[in-house]
């Protein structure tokens, strides 16, 4: 579902490197408004690196990343804040603040950026928790929640300021198939009902088939993109044997043979 194909994120001639070690070499792609866009690839191919650059944690070695037309790496101060308010990030580990309750985690950005009354902030936070199916957990500490619940709470926190782009880093990693499927349905529901654009980093195939409108596939051997498109199309029709191998869960020797 690419909507009207209006790009909300543009990655232009982007290169990522840690010191002299180039991880991603000169890639370009676009994410369209309202779609669920998945970045996938094998372990160590640079998926999370790309994501961390997209959310402004690292500066690109070369190229630009434009979020809603604004270069996130070149921004600072108020301009950076303006961009950051448009995005929400749910980290692989959840990254909930361990010293705060779930409600306090959700209220944090509301307290910092809005002049809402405490009651209003509580209500908004509770509504977000309801959206992710965590009603009743608001006064628990993160350590009292299971892994899947922590990921959902992180998603709720990322949505606190109603961003229109949500970045999810390995949302299904370490979850059992049922919890993982529930999270996939949640992502789809939020994408369709709230028109949120999702950028998801994952290599969980069932999730990819369920949620992805479009994927890009990274490969560490070429340090770049080896395929772009719908996951089912890539699985069935890709010219690249490694891409078909990835989608069909084949080991390398079987493809070579």
């Amino acid at each position: 579902m690419s909507g009207d194909k209006e790009p909300i994120i543009r990655v232009e001639n982007f290169t990522a490197a840690y010191g002299d070690n180039v991880i991603i070499d000169n890639i370009s792609f676009e994410v369209y408004r309202g779609e669920v866009f998945v970045i996938l690839g094998g372990s160590g191919c640079g998926k999370s690196t790309v994501l961390k650059h997209m959310i402004g944690l690292y500066e690109p070695a070369a190229g630009k990343i434009l979020i809603d037309g604004e270069d996130i790496a070149a921004s600072s101060g108020e301009d950076r804040l303006k961009i950051l308010k448009k995005i929400g990030v749910a980290y692989q580990s959840g990254a909930l603040f361990g010293s705060m309750t779930i409600l306090e985690n959700l209220r944090l950005s509301l307290e910092e950026y809005t002049d809402l009354s405490p009651d209003a902030m509580d209500l908004i936070s509770l509504m977000k928790l309801k959206l992710v199916g965590l009603s009743g957990s608001e006064h628990k500490m993160p350590s009292e929640l299971s892994g899947g619940m922590q990921k959902r709470a992180a998603l709720a926190r990322a949505m606190a300021l109603d961003p229109f782009i949500l970045f999810l880093d390995e949302p299904s990693a370490g979850l059992d198939p049922i919890t993982s499927a529930e999270l996939d349905q949640l992502i789809l529901r939020l994408a369709r009902s709230l028109k949120i654009t999702f950028v998801v980093v994952t290599h969980e195939l069932p999730s990819i088939y369920t949620i992805a409108d479009r994927v890009i596939m990274l490969d560490k051997r070429v340090k770049g993109i080896v395929a772009t498109g719908k996951p089912q199309d890539l699985r069935d029709h890709s010219d690249n044997p490694w891409v078909r191998q990835f989608f069909n869960r084949e080991v390398e020797s079987e493809v070579a043979a």
Partner: peptide
């Protein structure tokens, strides 16, 4: 340090805090 390892510092940064 634990917050850094748990990505909580990254989370703060991307929340603009």
């Amino acid at each position: 340090g634990t917050m850094k390892v748990n990505e909580e510092i990254d989370a703060l940064t991307t929340m603009g805090l």
